[in-house]
Amino acid sequence: MSAADLTTPVPRVAMRRPSPRFLASELRLVLRRRRNMAGLVVLAAVPIFIAVAVKSTASQPGSDAPAFFQSITENGLFVSLAALTIELGLFLPLAVAAISGDAIAGEANLGTLRYLLTVPVARLRLLGIKYAAIVIFSFLATFLIAIVGMAIGLILFGGGDVTTLSGTQISFAAGLGRVALAAVYLSLALASLGAVGLFISTLTEQPIAATIATVVFSTASFILDSIPQVHWLHPYLLTHHWMSFGDLLRAPIAWDGVVHGLYLAASYGLVFFLAAWARFAGKDVTS
């Protein structure tokens, strides 16, 4: 038990108004890191690459192309969706894993964690700030892809009415709203993976180990989800409903999968945040 924990009772401190200053400094720390900026540039490069590749190829993408590729030539908005679909497999989870794996283990590895804890900040509140920064980063990464994809798509292919998966058309504004909804949904889904990463980050002092373990978690979840023999497990897998963001592009919207996905994301987020607290609050910080 550390002195910080005993002198500042956790619940009372946790009730205190969240300090925007602490969160702002944490966000600045995350975003100013050269490696994180490079990661965001890679994320943003994918939609640009997709749009340029489709534009510069004479033949239209056929029915064996990845989802949404066929629609790109009709409407530039689909560059966002195609990029999100492709990056959801590895790039986005990897980005969130890098940030969340670094959250505690990174500080421990650099030796800054014990200094952080000497200031009178409750550990629950420290975890809360760390997690808030992860959630904000999830939104940032997802919306960066969506907005860059939309911008390059509109420049190269133009906009107009949006064709839903059901074959009916909705106005461009409505389509924009659907893409924004999809991005919010994916951000929340990735934020729940961030909670898993935060928990793993409290287990180790090696940030790279926490990051790899988090990517392994999401990838294993994808793999299990594709094995029909364990279909009883599928509804409980973190990634099972991720692709349900496509349901937001039907007419009318099919909410079932999205609602299940949000419930699952909230559950994973809560459980792993509590587990991170259980581990971190009672941990002897030596480095």
Partner: peptide, 15 residues
């Protein structure tokens, strides 16, 4: 929780 840190693990399990 301060006296028995292990009990904290009950919280995520209950969740």
């Amino acid at each position: 929780f301060a006296r028995r840190p292990q009990l904290r693990w009950l919280v995520p399990l209950i969740a």
